[in-house]
């Protein structure tokens, strides 16, 4: 196998070539040929390599399938009845959609943070310890919980009230609690679907800083509607767009590149229009 990154060739023919990089730092290699919800083709031809300790952002207009692609990476879509997937998603070289792979196991290695903060109606401590219990963690739970809360920049705010309900926190704190809950078990990859869209600018900046910090330890993929956010935090950005020419509304990857390149020198007209805000 070649060590150089092969050109990513989206369906439109514009080759978005990344500079030669080591191929084996790709943690999740997403290769969606076709993805259906029932008989609705939601996404096609989307190849996104997610590199170790980097932040990869997905941007694009609403309904283009960003969340769908993201949920594809840890098999959350399997919970949707009628979901069908063609292609492969390789995690550490192994196809997570291969026969005999347990989606539950996949989700333990590839964690997820959702758009709406969704803590459980239990104490802050138990929220963070949930994953530890699931994984049958035998060691010092309190220590892990503290570490996760520290890593999520929440420890100082909650250390005196770990027994209070997770629901008693503010929206921004709840979202950081969810991040702490997701990272407590130290998954290798963290998927975040618009993690800041329910938050005010200050809480958003905190989470962005947090993501940058976390990327030293974790690999992060994030969906965002906030282009500045993608520019600020993401190392790589993929732009998805909706193809309405074939009758449906099928999303596909238009362009994928280093964020810097994508935002400063977008290759494809759709990307250029989107980044300049020329879309309705």
């Amino acid at each position: 196998m070649s060590t150089a990154m092969p050109p990513l060739r989206p369906a439109n023919g514009h080759a978005a070539t990344l500079p030669a990089e080591k191929r084996d730092d790709i943690v999740v290699d997403c290769h969606i040929r076709e993805l259906y919800y029932g008989s609705f083709k939601a996404v096609r031809d989307t190849e996104i390599p997610i590199r170790k300790n980097s932040i990869t952002a997905f941007i694009g207009p609403s309904g283009c399938g960003k969340s769908t692609v993201l949920r594809c990476l840890n098999r959350m879509n399997d919970l949707v009845r009628g979901f069908r997937f063609e292609g492969h998603v390789r995690y550490r070289g192994r196809d997570i959609y291969a026969h005999g792979i347990d989606p539950v196991a996949v989700r333990r290695f590839i964690g997820m943070v959702f758009q709406q903060p969704n803590p459980f109606a239990t104490s802050i401590f138990n929220n963070v310890a949930f994953g530890l219990r699931l994984n049958g963690f035998k060691g010092d739970r309190a220590d892990k919980v503290e570490k996760a809360l520290r890593a999520a920049a929440l420890w100082d705010e909650v250390k005196d009230k770990l027994n209070k309900s997770g629901l008693s926190l503010s929206g921004g704190q709840q979202q950081r609690l969810c991040i702490a809950r997701a990272i407590a078990t130290e998954p290798e990859v963290l998927l975040m679907d618009e993690p800041c869209s329910a938050l005010d600018p200050i809480a958003t900046r905190r989470i962005e800083e947090l993501m940058t910090e976390l990327s030293q330890k974790f690999t992060i993929a994030i969906v965002t509607h906030n282009l500045q956010q993608a520019q600020r935090v993401a190392d790589y950005t993929g732009f998805l767009y909706v193809d309405t020419t074939q009758g449906g509304r099928t999303g596909y990857l238009v362009e994928f590149n280093h964020s810097k390149h994508l935002f400063e020198d977008p290759q494809h007209p759709h990307t250029q229009q989107y980044i300049r805000g020329e879309f309705s």
């Binding site: 959350m76 919970l79 539950v104 333990r108 964690g111 969704n118 459980f120 699931l134 078990t185």
Partner: peptide, 15 residues
Amino acid sequence: VPPKIRMAAYGLGAT
């Protein structure tokens, strides 16, 4: 029970 709570549990790798 809000779907987001279910999703949170599944997302953490709960059966």
